[in-house]
Amino acid sequence: MHDVLIIAEAGVNHNGNVPLARELIDIAKDAGVDAVKFQTFKAESLISKVADKADYQKQMTRTNESQLEMVKKLELSYGDFTELKKYCDQKEILFLSTPFDLESIDFLNSFDMPIFKVPSGEITNLPYLIKIAQTGKPVIMSTGMCDLADVGLALEVLQNNGAGSVTLLHCNTQYPTPFEDANIKAMLTLKEHFGVKVGYSDHTLGIAAPLAAVALGAAVIEKHFTLDKNLEGPDHKASLDPRELKAMVSAIRNVELALGDGVKRVSKSENPNKQAARKSIVAKRNIVKGELFTQDNLTVKRPGNGISPMKWFEVLGMSATRDFGEDELIEL
């Protein structure tokens, strides 16, 4: 793994179709992410018959179906997830899935998933949080629609009931998120306030916001992706396409490299340029042996392999030990 864990969120962008889900795994693997994540649920255990769709879901699906009817079409069976987990193992990419009900927590815990992911919508679900914590595994928790008090209560439940290390993801639960609402600096507030690792689950368009989060120190980046933004479904239009996903991964890895270790030093790549870019004390005109060095007969020019101009006042007033031609490096 790299310093930043990149999670490609397939979510329900498989549209309830296993071959499409496998294709999403292929795309994630090709993009170079660390993990591909799905969503595991029993629709009837997740959503009541009277639950309305979110506004963004209405805009993205444009049908009169209920939220339950919409999500039911996106449900995969536990057998399907067993098949997808095996496929991820074959492709050598980490399989993750977010459970949305208690039964699905038990099912996913039967896998060797190293991490459980808590979505923003479950932060106020006490029985859910307790059951996640009791797995004893590390937890990554998104914090959309939360203030610090909400996050603190959920974090306390996890920590008091046996969860492993907890990483908090700043998040805005709107699809897509307006850039003015992304508020990525809140990620730093979470880190300072709770003293845990932090990251960013992004729902803005494009890849600018995740890169900013990495530059600010995100340990985890999560981003939705899809095969085609024009597919029917609630999350496709706010997702990255395969080309964009690959571009995001490449850019994040470059940002990781560019951040470095923070030690101010002459780098290996720039060291050869010191001589060409810096300057030395040189003769401004012809100087004869024994002549005193003055501001009238000395100047500063490239290259930098002679006496440093930082010794300017040490050289002034000294006598030339030999003749010097114009632009010749001064020697003492």
Rank of each mutant, 00 (worst) to 15 (best):
E244T: 02
F324W: 03
K289C: 15
Y200N: 11
D3L: 10
M1L: 14
K85G: 05
A43N: 00
E326I: 12
L240E: 07
S66G: 14
L329F: 08
E326P: 03
P242L: 01
L216W: 00
H236A: 00
R265N: 06
S319W: 01
Y87D: 04
A218H: 02
P176A: 01
F81G: 15
L257Q: 09
L168G: 08
L257A: 14
K223H: 08
E192Y: 02
V266K: 02
V196T: 03
F107C: 08
L46K: 00
Q67N: 08
L329Q: 03
V166L: 02
L84P: 12
G306D: 13
E291M: 10
L216Y: 10
L316P: 01
K264S: 14
P138C: 13
M113Q: 14
V300M: 07
K311N: 08
M318P: 00
A212I: 15
E23M: 08
L188S: 14
I115T: 14
A163R: 00
L240A: 01
K53H: 02
F41W: 11
V288M: 01
T124D: 14
Y200I: 00
A208W: 07
A283V: 09
S319G: 03
I115A: 03
S308F: 01
I184K: 12
L158Y: 05
G144A: 05
G317R: 08
L155C: 01
I115N: 07
P234F: 08
T321A: 06
P127T: 03
K246Q: 06
D228R: 02
N297L: 07
N230A: 12
D3Y: 14
P272K: 07
H236E: 08
L292K: 15
I130R: 13
L245Y: 02
D241F: 02
L84D: 12
L5Q: 10
T61C: 06
T173L: 00
C146R: 00
T226A: 10
L96P: 09
G317N: 11
K237T: 06
V18A: 03
N297C: 12
L20I: 15
V139G: 13
L96N: 08
R253D: 03
Q275G: 09
T321L: 05
R265Q: 02
A51R: 12
E222R: 09
A31G: 09
E92A: 11
A182M: 12
N271G: 01
N161G: 07
N64E: 14
A277G: 04
I7V: 15
N254A: 02
K131I: 04
Q39F: 11
F95G: 14
N297E: 06
I221C: 10
S142E: 07
I27Y: 00
F81Q: 04
L5F: 14
G162F: 01
S110G: 10
V36G: 07
D327P: 07
V12W: 04
F194E: 03
K289Y: 02
H2V: 10
L24Y: 04
A10C: 07
V139N: 07
E103L: 09
L148M: 06
T177H: 02
A163H: 09
P210L: 10
D323P: 13
K72V: 11
V263N: 03
I7D: 05
F313H: 14
E222W: 15
K29H: 14
G233R: 05
A251W: 03
K289E: 09
L155D: 00
G206D: 04
M310V: 05
S142L: 11
D55N: 11
P99I: 12
D89C: 00
A28P: 08
R302A: 03
P127R: 00
